[in-house]
Design a protein around this nucleic acid. Sequence first.
DNA 1: TAAGCGATGTATCGAGCCGATACATCGACG
DNA 2: CGTCGATGTATCGGCTCGATACATCGCTTA
Lengths: 213, 213
Amino acid sequence: MLEFAILGLLHESPMHGYELRKELAAKLGSIRAAISYGTLYPTLRRLQSAGYITEAGETPPTTPEVPALTSKRGRVVYKITAEGKERFADLIAQAGPETYDDAGFGIHFAFFARTDQATRLRILEGRRRKVEERRESMRDVLARAGERLDAYTLELQRHGLDACEREVRWLEELIVNERSGRQPSQEGREASQGETTRDGTGETSPHVQDERP
Amino acid sequence: MLEFAILGLLHESPMHGYELRKELAAKLGSIRAAISYGTLYPTLRRLQSAGYITEAGETPPTTPEVPALTSKRGRVVYKITAEGKERFADLIAQAGPETYDDAGFGIHFAFFARTDQATRLRILEGRRRKVEERRESMRDVLARAGERLDAYTLELQRHGLDACEREVRWLEELIVNERSGRQPSQEGREASQGETTRDGTGETSPHVQDERP
DNA sequence: TAAGCGATGTATCGAGCCGATACATCGACG
DNA sequence: CGTCGATGTATCGGCTCGATACATCGCTTA
């Protein structure tokens, strides 16, 4: 999973570990917490030994003289290889079942800009199917377990069900957009380019989504 | 994390592995997928060797005669011990930072019926704080990264931000309820069936929190 | 009748991932 | 002039998952 994200990021430009973590946090902030270094560095080494990425020598240090007095470690910049790009394309193409769980879907979605439309559609529909199943199962629990579960558990289920329904609607919208060849969020929303909402803290009209007059 | 959930469930009645998994799936269906056996069985053994649970001999098999011809494995029923109940209470009392991430909060919330009001409030507020932080960070990304990120990534952020805002509102509501001593979801909503609370076993009146050992 | 199938049930293994921890450099701020 | 936070690389123990294996039971169906 993380392999995919790293390849996707390095696809844009070479980076070192710390930078990767930050970019990842920004791009996937809505899905998962920042990735742990205990995951990142081993994965980088794994990818490197698999030949998907290589070390790209740091930009020439300002002083070529006095090179290694204290054997300074310095940052290690990685860049993607041709095999890495191929691997990334493969990972996009084969959408396994893990592509549809929360984390997997989020990561794939984050790299939709590098994914062809047919695959985008396939992934969106796969995700929708999965969320619908989850929703149905939760409806069942709520319907036939009014007495078995306590009030707090029920409240939790309700909140979860609500989130599911909302995500299905969101996916529906994206699918419709995708089919008609549009980019997301171009049609109804005010994009950020203008000033329109400069403050960002206040109102945040919750995600307009349908029927803008 | 799972330790907490298992102790919580066994607190209600003895169960065997398969049953635990199903109950867990029902109770936590809105938080996480069904738990893996590769997690469950090692955890059960860990809890057992720690003395928090013990094997409770299966209800006398229908045939006491012909006892063990094929050395049949049969199900292993576990029940919680006094130390286990103590441990569960401890885990409730000490709310670490992991209590506020998605999974941790969900599990704690699912057992709010066995949690005293002060702790409930503390956990709800801790969770709210965490979600608010997440929300702010996402607002930042959206505000100052209009061009750095592609349309799909932006859409993902928007959806995530929306979910955060919604959860904060949900938490606010729960906190208000909690402060006024009400049970969740009694006040505004149209319940699914007519008879308010017919509850059979748990009854979960607001300050239950412990039963006879 | 037997063959197959899905639910029930226990169990292990490799690999991914996390949190804690350690260590080192650098600019800023008091 | 010290120390604090950001930058930066790295390891370790332990939890968790998905895949896999195996066995029993009751039901349908050829």
